[in-house]
Each structure stands twice: as C-alpha cells, then as structure tokens.
C-alpha cells in the first residue's frame, strides 16, 4: 500500500481508538495512538497475513501484541484488515463481547493468537512461535510489539538471552519507546535504560526508527525483513509519542489509561479525518 494510503488508514484507526475508549468509558488511548502508524504499516503493508483466520497460521507472518493494554488499536487494525466486521468495535469492553479489555483467544476473536495484558510475556510467546515456524520449515516471520516500560519485566530478558543463543533470526521485535509509563516517565521510574545498547549486548541486530513517520516505518520494515535469516534476532527501537494524533493527549503519561469525555472526544475527532467510515 502507498504511504499516503497507509496514513489514511491510520487516521481512521485513531478515530476508532478514541471512540472505543470513550464508548467503554475506560481503556488505554495513549499507547494505542502512539503505535497506530506501526501496526497499520504491519497489517496493510509489511506482513503477509490471511484475514481468514487460523490459529496455526501456517505460511503466514504472525503478530503478537505483548503490551495488551493497547487493545483498541489491535482491534481496529484487525477489523479494517477484514478479520471481523468493524461494527463489532462498538462492543469493546462490554459484557458478553469478544473485544475484552485486553486481547484474548478465550472469546475466539479472529486474529488473536495469545492472551496478553499481564506484561512481559509476549516476547517469549513470539520466540516460541518463531521456533515452531522453523520446526515446520515455514519461512514466514514473527512480529512482536512490546512497550518500553514493559521491558522492566525480567521475563523479557530471559527471552532476549535465549533468542540470541538459539539464533532465532525469524523474529522482529519492536519496542514502543514512548518514554512513559503509568506512574510517570520511564526515566523517573527506572532511570536511563538504553534499550538499544542492552539488545546489542545480548547479541541482537538492532535498528531504530521514528514510529510516527509512516514513510520511515515502511522503509525500516523493508530493511529489517531483508536482515532476517542471518543468525540474529532483530529489534527495532521505535520512538513514538504517546497520544500521537490527538494534540491534548500528547507529551505526558496522563492519557495512558483514562477515557476521554464527550468534549474531549469531539476535540479529538476534529483533528482526525474519517477516511474509511466510522464503525
């Protein structure tokens, strides 16, 4: 898909995110908005995937969301990719729905392959799925998205150490480096932690990009895909702005996990063109 078209999809996805969180009166708009460009680029350009969902995904690239709280983004991208009807986005966080607060396989929503929400588990799952691909002689790729705050969870470093040892070179892990977490900036919580240097020290192939620049995302994904299969797992340090696309949600951790009121919603939507039709 052309970059301008991808930007239009991202605008619609951002509209969906704020509307879903507003409708549920709860959820996590900040990180969802920040990662919207990346997930759109994955599902509408980089990944080879099939909207006719099968859990095993043989012959397809697979995506795992580790920071499950940005579920509104995941659901919107899956709906616009054709996994389920976009009208279902209105059921986000509602009783008897498939769009649970955090993604789950339990309600059989097409497109979801693992439950996530309790942080720090998605990377291990992705490495396991990558090994499964290799055992099946399936040359397709595994993509994982993690938050930067989430990297404080120790399990990630077990997986990072293992993947390098195992030469898991069919996995591309993006870290959403927005520098924010619930209680404040990542720096105020855990000091400086240069994740790129840590991944390098663990033996990974490390790239960086502006995760809110669609052209740069598309170009970087082409480069990293070409770098797979060379004996090293791949990490992308993806600099984003939490709340990107909604001016008053940007620049702080305030909108990590709260819902916009009616006025906030109107103000947010005013800056986000409806490009594919609201749900």
């Amino acid at each position: 898909m052309q970059t301008e078209e991808l930007k239009k999809v991202a605008s619609q996805v951002r509209r969906d995110i704020v509307r879903m969180v507003h409708g549920a009166k709860s959820g996590h708009p900040g990180g969802s908005l920040g990662c919207a460009d990346y997930l759109v680029a994955l599902y509408f350009d980089a990944m080879n995937h099939n909207k006719d969902f099968s859990m095993d995904g043989i012959g397809e690239d697979l995506f795992f969301l580790s920071n499950g709280h940005i579920s509104p983004l995941f659901y919107s991208v899956l709906a616009h990719s054709g996994y389920f009807d976009k009208s279902e986005l209105a059921s986000f966080r509602k009783l008897n729905g498939r769009l649970q607060g955090h993604p789950t396989t339990h309600e059989h929503l097409p497109g979801i392959r693992i439950a996530s929400g309790s942080l720090g588990q998605g990377l291990s799952v992705g490495v396991g799925a990558a090994m499964s691909k290799k055992l099946n002689n399936d040359g397709s790729l595994i993509y994982v998205l993690c938050g930067d705050g989430e990297m404080q969870e120790g399990q990630n470093w077990e997986a990072i150490m293992f993947a390098a040892k195992q030469k898991t070179d069919n996995i591309i892990v993006a870290i959403d480096v927005n520098g924010q977490q619930i209680d404040g900036s990542t720096k105020s919580i855990m000091g400086d932690y240069p994740l790129d240097a840590k991944f390098l020290a663990f033996g990974w192939d490390v790239y960086s990009m502006d995760g809110n620049n669609m052209q740069e995302i598309v170009d970087t994904l082409k480069i990293v895909k070409a770098a797979t299969g060379k004996g090293k797992p791949i990490a992308i340090m993806m600099k984003t702005e939490m709340g990107m696309g909604v001016d008053f949600m940007m620049g702080s951790h305030k909108w990590h996990g709260i819902a916009p009121n009616d006025t906030d919603l109107a103000n947010a939507l005013a800056g986000l063109p409806e490009t594919l039709g609201d749900y």
Partner: peptide, 13 residues
Amino acid sequence: ANMIGMAAGLTIG
C-alpha cells in the same frame, strides 16, 4: 518463565 511462554508460542503451528 520464558520456558512456559515459549511453550505457549510453540503450540501455534
């Protein structure tokens, strides 16, 4: 912890 997570991932496929 990584072992359990990877086992879950291995089932996919």
